[in-house]
């Protein structure tokens, strides 16, 4: 008892407590990383829609690093990225999670889209006028497991289809999506006139569409 009390005094105890806390956090992160599957994330989102605080914290633990990475990649500014991350989770809590339609898209890609779109809005200094997700405001019938598998293979498909493009064109699509590059940014980066860039990219998008529909 005495040594505990001694530790509580002075600075040493803060360090010790911080270590214990970090260890506990680390453990819980590990467990979450091990335990969270796509279904778990989906459940968390649905529970967040019901204002379940535990689920909210779990969802944050399981997904915030991924979303922060995405937002940071677009904004390239830590303070702004923290702001957007905060906004994304706050909106999820304040009703946004209720707009997730379970089964249509993978919950992780839904969250990624939400985070990435918010980051783009910030980059363009747009007021966040659009809703959290762009899906039509009518819920689809819940697809079965096959549809979920389809959705998963869809997502791998984009990589294969980008491979079919001229490398520069694929890089332009990635730049627009991941770095938030505008046509003007892309034109400068690839050293072509704006209109040429536009034509290139639109052509790439049509090729992509053909490939994705195959």
């Amino acid at each position: 008892m005495h040594h505990i009390k001694a530790r509580r005094k002075g600075k040493g105890c803060n360090v010790w407590l911080a270590l214990v806390r970090d260890y506990v956090i680390l453990r819980s992160h590990e467990e979450i990383a091990l335990m969270t599957s796509v279904q778990d994330i989906e459940k968390m989102i649905l529970r967040v829609a019901l204002q379940d605080r535990k689920a909210f914290e779990a969802l944050y633990s399981a997904t915030s690093a991924k979303l922060f990475g995405i937002i940071l990649r677009v904004l390239k500014d830590r303070a702004a990225a923290e702001d957007v991350l905060q906004d994304v989770y706050l909106r999820l809590w304040q009703g946004g999670a209720g707009t997730f339609t379970s089964g249509t898209a993978s919950p992780i890609s839904w969250l990624a889209t939400v985070a990435r779109n918010r980051a783009i809005d910030r980059l363009r200094q747009l007021k966040p006028s659009r809703p959290l997700s762009d899906a039509p405001e009518i819920a689809d019938a819940k697809p079965g497991p096959e549809a979920l598998v389809m959705a998963a293979s869809d997502r791998a498909q984009i990589h294969a289809c980008l491979e079919e493009l001229v490398p520069d064109r694929a890089a332009a699509v990635r730049g627009a999506y991941l770095d938030g590059d505008t046509y003007a940014d892309l034109a400068a980066r690839f050293g072509v006139p704006l209109n040429t860039m536009r034509t290139w990219l639109r052509r790439s998008l049509l090729s992509l569409k053909d490939c994705l529909n195959r």
Binding site: F68, S109, N117, Q157
Partner: peptide, 25 residues
């Protein structure tokens, strides 16, 4: 959006600052 979101797989996760969840909460 669903197709493009797969591109985020190549983005490395970055841990946000530790106190951020507290702020959100």
């Amino acid at each position: 959006q669903d197709h493009f979101s797969a591109l985020t797989n190549e983005v490395e996760p970055v841990a946000p600052p530790k106190n951020l969840f507290k702020k959100i909460a």
